[in-house]
């Protein structure tokens, strides 16, 4: 649930960071193409929100660099250029979606949810495991039909585990997905969130794989 936002415009970048954070994402914001490449080279993101007209390195160049290294992180392009060939070029270079400025924050988050869903090859918009149902759009979780109250981090952690159900997620991978740069992370924060989730959903929901990480069953 961690996004890399690449936008050189200070005002728009600031608004997007606030808006996407409100929507529950951990957002890292960089303002030029080179910084984007540096971030993508070292860390993994749930999705990339990419402006095209960037200083130092153009957005399309960042995109082709990303796809050249077989990175399938979903990419949503933001651009003010409405010419058809611009869109076609962006999509041909490996973008997954395209939004024309100015755009609506709700549409942006909906499209990001769809991108993440498609990236995991999941047909249904909701995530299920046993009697647990998580709806990313409404950010609600039910357990056997009862609504469960989760904090932002607990919800995001559960969603990451559900997205990767059947796979063991390492601590580092989970933390990368949960925290943006600059977020204060206590060393045992992840264990605390896991503990709370188990308390709210049942002890056997999340398995601990000793020395590796955590997993949920598909």
């Amino acid at each position: 649930m961690r996004l890399l936002l690449v936008e050189d415009d200070r005002l728009l970048g600031d608004g997007l960071q606030s808006g996407l954070t409100q929507a529950g994402y951990a957002v890292d914001w960089v303002r030029d193409g080179e910084a984007a490449v540096a971030a993508l080279a070292t860390e993994s993101f749930t999705a990339l929100v990419l402006d095209l007209g960037l200083p130092r390195r153009d957005g399309l160049s960042v995109l082709s660099w990303l796809r050249a290294r077989q990175d399938s992180t979903p990419v949503l392009i933001l651009t003010a250029r409405d010419q058809l060939e611009d869109k076609v070029r962006g999509l041909d270079l490996g973008a997954d979606d395209y939004m024309l400025k100015p755009f609506d924050l709700d549409e942006l988050t909906a499209r990001l949810r769809a991108l993440v869903r498609r990236a995991h090859g999941r047909p249904s918009p909701t995530l299920c495991a046993g009697s647990i149902v998580l709806d990313p759009a409404t950010r609600r979780v039910t357990h056997g039909g009862d609504a469960i109250d989760l904090t932002l981090r607990e919800f995001n952690l559960l969603q990451v585990l559900l997205e990767n159900a059947g796979h063991v997620m390492s601590r580092r991978a989970l933390e990368e997905q949960l925290y943006a740069w600059g977020d204060a992370v206590e060393s045992n924060a992840l264990e605390v969130h896991i503990h709370h989730l188990r308390k709210k959903l049942g002890n056997d929901v999340i398995r601990t794989v000793r020395g590796v990480g955590y997993a949920m069953d598909a």
Binding site: L11, L12, D14, G19, G53, A80, D82, L100, P102, D104
Partner: peptide, 18 residues
């Protein structure tokens, strides 16, 4: 001009929604 006008408009809209 489209780029220069739409970007601040996008920023305005997003900031207002936030």
């Amino acid at each position: 001009a489209a780029h220069e006008l739409r970007t601040p408009l996008a920023a305005l809209k997003i900031q207002a929604q936030v």
